[in-house]
């Protein structure tokens, strides 16, 4: 009638040093003190949809199961509501660890491909960088065209509703001094944060796109 399945993870598939790398990122240090109480999974409004619960992600990171974590849906389902961070008895900044894992998954290109969430993050970032501001309705349009054209067609009624209510701007929002912002970002690209004297930023090796 029904089938019970179980995913087996092998010790030999671990990527030695991954856990240490993540816990050395400023803000992620407390992960080492996790007592696996599961409060994070209990308060998370999205854990019922996750392949690994937040508690499991904490354990997997600490035990170097890099591939399992970076390919998981969990890190992308986190909507940054900070409920886990607020409730964690060990004061682990779980939301920030999820951000760190998202960055790593994106940098290594191993996030689940069919997931529209990383695409949204990338398109959002591109638009914010280029224009200085985000025009939400255009961002949503680009997202749907890139990920799911059928869903875009299904959204015509919502778009029309926004339009008639004056909530769908027809021109791009941009800042005036776009070159100023671009110059700032180029400065970041030219600094290696890990080469800085006080840097304990092992976690930002992938920063800056170089």
């Amino acid at each position: 009638m029904f089938e019970l399945t179980r995913t087996i993870k092998y010790e030999a598939d671990r990527v030695k040093g991954f856990g240490r790398e993540v816990t050395s990122v400023p803000g992620c240090e407390n992960l080492e003190t996790c007592i696996q109480c599961g409060t994070c999974s209990g308060v998370c409004p999205l854990s019922i949809y996750m392949d690994y619960s937040p508690r499991q992600v904490m354990a997997l990171v600490r035990s170097d199961f890099k591939n399992e974590v970076l390919r998981s849906h969990t890190i992308w389902l986190c909507a940054s509501c900070y409920a886990c961070t607020s409730e964690c008895p060990r004061k682990i900044r779980i939301t920030d660890i999820m951000y760190e894992l998202k960055q790593r998954a994106m940098h290594e290109g191993i996030y689940p491909r069919k997931f529209p969430i990383p695409v949204l993050a990338q398109e959002f970032t591109k638009m914010a960088h280029k224009r200085g501001r985000v025009t939400e309705n255009f961002l949503a349009t680009i997202l749907f065209l890139k990920t799911n054209i059928m869903a875009a067609l299904g959204m015509w009624k919502l778009g029309l509703g926004l339009l008639t209510r004056g909530r769908f701007p027809l021109k791009w929002e941009s800042i005036k001094r776009r070159s100023e912002l671009d110059g700032m970002m180029k400065t970041v690209d030219n600094i290696s944060i890990d080469a800085l004297p006080q840097a304990q930023h092992h976690g930002h090796k992938h920063n800056g796109g170089h």
Partner: peptide
């Protein structure tokens, strides 16, 4: 004057420093 996007949750997921 000439404020820009705060970055929201999306930018943090791509590049924290930027």
């Amino acid at each position: 004057d000439d404020w820009n996007c705060c970055g929201a949750t999306a930018y943090m997921a791509v590049d924290e420093v930027k």
